[in-house]
């Protein structure tokens, strides 16, 4: 998804002309369409994430939109306080783009696995999380982000996805569900990010006739909108490539618990443990992924 992201960002900057792309010495053979076209607005901050994030806030505070592109843990946990105080508190248009969602960087090990990033990013009041599951959702998310500049987190799958998406109409809006598979009116699987394949297999098995919905945009302030779009259901299953604690499933649980309803929820998530072995993404997902 990263190449599509860079292609779209480059295209959007032709019109906007106020976009900066900042990286922490990564993105080789990915970022070039942007950096070659806009060399002055592409900055390699070096391997120094705290300065990178503070600096990105500084750039954004001067009528610009900064996109910070990195691998999840480096641009979140390593510089968490810069995100909290400099970006979120000042409500600045900085979009933190992480590549390698979930177990995407399987063989690189736990340092590169993104299993807690939602937990951090959804703790900031002004932050919107975008976790597109396919290229259509990504392109539409970017469109929304550019038109509605604010602190945001865009979480991308490492692999390029050939197809656009299965959903009939992609219109990404915070807290709004996108239907991918039409099925039961009362039972739904709700996913975020690149977890469609897992959910589709579930529908083939234990969760026959369940509808499948994607929620690509969510955050602390969108729980009520989300609740209003799911209150018609009686059974919900959430699926994510992240730990449950602080994750998407927990966010759904929190959204539901605050309003009167009789919805039964089940959460599917990455096993609650540090991962000490490696393997391909598929291997790790089979071993530690949503069951």
């Amino acid at each position: 998804m990263r190449k599509i992201f860079i292609k779209e960002l480059t295209r959007l900057n032709k019109k906007k002309k106020n976009i900066y792309l900042v990286v922490n010495d990564l993105g080789y053979n990915v970022v070039e369409p942007f950096s070659n076209n806009y060399p002055k607005r592409f900055l390699n901050a070096g391997v120094s994430e705290q300065n990178m994030m503070g600096m990105s806030a500084g750039i954004a505070s001067e009528q610009s939109h900064t996109f910070v592109y990195s691998i999840a843990n480096f641009s979140t946990f390593r510089c968490a306080e810069q995100i909290r105080n400099d970006i979120d508190y000042h409500n600045l248009p900085v979009t933190i783009v992480s590549v390698g969602s979930g177990l995407g960087y399987g063989n690189l090990g736990y340092s590169h696995h993104a299993l807690q990033d939602y937990a951090l990013m959804r703790s900031f009041p002004n932050m919107l999380i975008f976790s597109p599951g396919n290229n259509n959702e990504l392109i539409n998310s970017l469109d929304y982000i550019i038109k509605n500049p604010q602190p945001s987190y865009l979480r991308l799958d490492k692999d390029e996805i050939p197809q656009g998406g299965d959903e009939k109409k992609t219109l990404v809006r915070p807290g709004k569900l996108l239907q991918i598979i039409k099925g039961s009116k009362t039972n739904a699987i709700i996913i975020t990010g690149k977890t469609q394949e897992i959910a589709k297999n579930m529908i083939k098995g234990k969760y026959k006739n369940y509808s499948l919905y994607s929620l690509p945009a969510w955050g602390m302030k969108t729980k009520k909108i989300f609740f209003d779009s799911v209150k018609k259901f009686t059974n919900i299953v959430t699926v994510e490539d992240h730990f449950l604690d602080g994750g998407f499933g927990s966010w759904v649980n929190e959204a539901l618990i605050n309003y009167k309803n009789n919805i039964l929820v089940k959460n599917k998530y990455i096993s609650a443990k540090c991962i000490y072995d490696v393997g391909s993404k598929d291997y790790l997902l089979k071993k530690y992924g949503p069951k």
Binding site: M55, I59, S61, T66
Partner: peptide, 16 residues
């Protein structure tokens, strides 16, 4: 308020 935040911010403005 948290120390070490002002300079990165200033650097961002300066590079912009």
């Amino acid at each position: 308020g948290s120390l070490g935040h002002g300079l990165p911010l200033a650097v961002g403005k300066a590079i912009k």
